[in-house]
Simulated scan of single mutants.
Amino acid sequence: MNQELRVAAYAVCVQGEQILLARWVARDGTKRWTLPGGGMDHGEDPIDTAVREVEEETGYAAEMTALLGVDSIRRHYPRKLGSFADFQGLRIIYEARITGGSLRPETDGSTDLAAWCPLDTVRDLDRVELVDTGLGLWRERPALGRFPADG
């Protein structure tokens, strides 16, 4: 089984009662809302990753203002020729504020739309679990930057 590690950085951008989300398009065409962010390039600082990804996916310039936490996920995915990958995603989640730019969708990327969504409607959106994780970290600010494994 191949072991795969992906380190990524994401931004929780809340203004008033709205959160900035990007709509991720999976390989099978499924679309779900996520936090703006994505994979780190080799040698890139995680804050620079989050800033770059917010601009790529939403059109906005952003400043990371606080480290909210680090989230780790593990999945097993099928690969070619009947093999499987043991995937671990390490997700660094920041609080961010918008400093410039204008809202626009990403072109030729993994997302196709960006939008400000009312916080009280997020639970009704078709979204990845990272949105709930990011909002939970933003609201609760756990001392260790993560929630207990059983809760």
Rank of each mutant, 00 (worst) to 15 (best):
N2I: 13
N2R: 12
N2L: 08
E4Y: 13
E4K: 14
E4M: 12
E4S: 13
L5F: 11
R6G: 07
V7W: 07
A8S: 15
Y10P: 10
A11K: 02
V14E: 03
Q15R: 14
E17L: 09
E17I: 09
Q18H: 14
I19E: 07
I19W: 06
L21T: 05
L21A: 02
A22I: 02
A22D: 07
W24C: 01
W24H: 15
A26P: 01
A26M: 03
A26E: 13
R27P: 08
D28C: 01
D28W: 00
G29N: 03
K31Q: 15
K31L: 07
R32G: 00
T34K: 05
L35Y: 01
G37P: 10
G37N: 00
G38L: 08
G38K: 08
G39C: 07
G39I: 11
G39K: 10
M40R: 12
D41F: 12
D41S: 11
D41Q: 14
D41H: 13
H42T: 12
H42R: 11
H42N: 07
H42G: 06
G43M: 02
G43V: 02
E44I: 13
D45E: 13
D45R: 08
D45C: 06
I47Y: 08
I47W: 09
D48E: 15
D48M: 11
T49N: 11
T49G: 08
A50Q: 04
A50F: 07
V51T: 12
R52I: 05
R52Y: 05
E53W: 15
E53K: 15
V54D: 01
E55Q: 13
E55N: 11
E55Y: 12
E56V: 10
E56C: 03
T58Y: 07
G59P: 14
Y60W: 09
Y60F: 15
A61P: 03
A61Q: 15
A62E: 03
A62Y: 08
A62R: 01
E63I: 01
M64S: 05
M64T: 13
T65L: 00
T65R: 00
A66V: 00
A66R: 12
L67G: 00
L67A: 00
L68P: 15
G69L: 05
V70H: 01
D71R: 04
I73D: 09
I73A: 10
I73P: 04
R75C: 01
Y77R: 09
Y77K: 09
P78I: 03
P78V: 02
P78E: 04
R79W: 09
L81T: 11
G82V: 15
S83E: 13
F84S: 08
A85F: 00
A85T: 12
A85V: 12
D86A: 10
